[in-house]
Design a protein around this nucleic acid. Structure first.
Lengths: 218, 218
DNA sequence: CCAATAATTAACCATATGGTTAATTTAATA
DNA sequence: TATTAAATTAACCATATGGTTAATTATTGG
């Protein structure tokens, strides 16, 4: 058999799988949309099915039950949210650059999924044990040790002020993530429309590092 | 009738009302506990009744329906969370003192109700419209204008660095509130037990103002 | 083209859940 | 004490919701 035949044959064989994936994909997209705004408790399987444009039975055909479907979505969300932090925190960049990278990359990423942080944080609060087991234990577990150590060293070397690494880390993460968590609050309170909010977050990519560096440099 | 008689008579008449209040109080406490962790969607009326040690029917006797009960709890929570900000932001203190007051009072208050921020933020996200109408329009609506103006003036007077008031406000609020929203995350990640977490938050009352002032002072 | 397998659906089922009713107990009042 | 009103409960009810079944319609592979 020629390579071409094998390839074409493969394509034909895949047609089902393709459709599978397309349906599964649509389910996952729908589920993500619903879960991420309504949460596990508030989400309705019917709504997810509707959103995906399929029958509810088909939903259970692809995903055994709500919990399983939720787990898939939640894990994907958590994977997206946490491992990124590791990469940056454990890189070999100097401290200031690292702070800049974190803000830039993290805000960029969350801006495309603005509901993720509140969703994940909320579900963690709902059941921290489950979270620990299912998500945290894998590669999603943040390892801020290197970053903390790095701060400690810079302090000892006298390069920056004598700040507690833990508080600095908390400040960095808080300033970066919280605006998304409190988005509607900030929007209403400061009369920012969608575009203005995006613009403000875009500014914060530079604003936060500048703020932090001003606070800790000698 | 003597004043004494009227008073005593009033006491007797009140005995029912007292019991009423005690039951209602127990319901409200129970509802608060359940709603604040489970959210509107996840809370069960039966659980609230159990927690209050009463029958489910009695629950509906005191509060027409879940929505009404939730509204009561949510409003109380929001009232607790927001107006406090106003008082401080609109006071006549100088900028640095104001920042110190905010961190101190806010962290103190939230430390007694650590679930409030995530609960409120979450429900706001769930239905921003409802929130606007029911909560925001009243005296709970924050008015950060004075605070923002104050920053602007300090900048113009050359007392502090040229920072955007909006970003400074966001930074302040983020660093103060977010640690509570991400509490389980921080706790797991940094291996902080309940006591240590409290201790860290206690430190932040001073740490955040110091950090901010270091960042903006010339 | 035909049997077998996978995808999809309509109609159900069981249970959880918010809410109600009617009866009972407790308290207020005259 | 007798009457009335309020508080409380057990037993229901209607519906929403997660999940299943059995039948139908594509797809696949020989």
């Amino acid at each position: 058999m020629s390579d071409l035949f094998i390839f074409v044959n493969h394509l034909v064989k895949m047609s089902k799988a393709i459709k599978d994936k397309s349906t599964e994909e649509r389910i996952l997209n729908a589920a993500k949309q619903i879960f991420v705004v309504k949460g596990m408790a508030g989400a309705r399987m019917q709504d997810i099915a509707d959103q995906a444009g399929i029958n509810k039975a088909l939903l259970h055909y692809y995903f055994k039950n709500k919990e399983k479907l939720f787990e898939t979505i939640f894990l994907e969300a958590a994977q997206k949210l946490f491992p990124r932090i590791n990469e940056i925190f454990n890189s070999d960049q100097p401290l200031f650059e690292k702070i800049e990278s974190f803000c830039d990359e993290y805000i960029t990423m969350v801006m495309e999924n603005p509901y993720l942080p509140l969703f994940v944080l909320n579900e963690i609060n709902q059941d921290p044990e489950y979270f620990m087991k299912k998500v945290w234990s894998g590669n999603a577990k943040p390892h801020p040790e290197k970053f903390l150590k790095q701060i400690e060293i810079e302090v000892k070397k006298g390069k920056i002020k004598n700040i507690s690494p833990l508080h600095l880390l908390m400040n960095l993460i808080s300033m970066t993530i919280f605006p998304f968590v409190g988005k509607p609050m900030f929007q209403k309170n400061m009369s920012l429309d969608e575009l203005q909010f995006r613009s403000v977050m875009e500014q914060r990519k530079k604003e936060i590092p500048r703020f932090i560096i001003d606070a800790i440099k000698k």
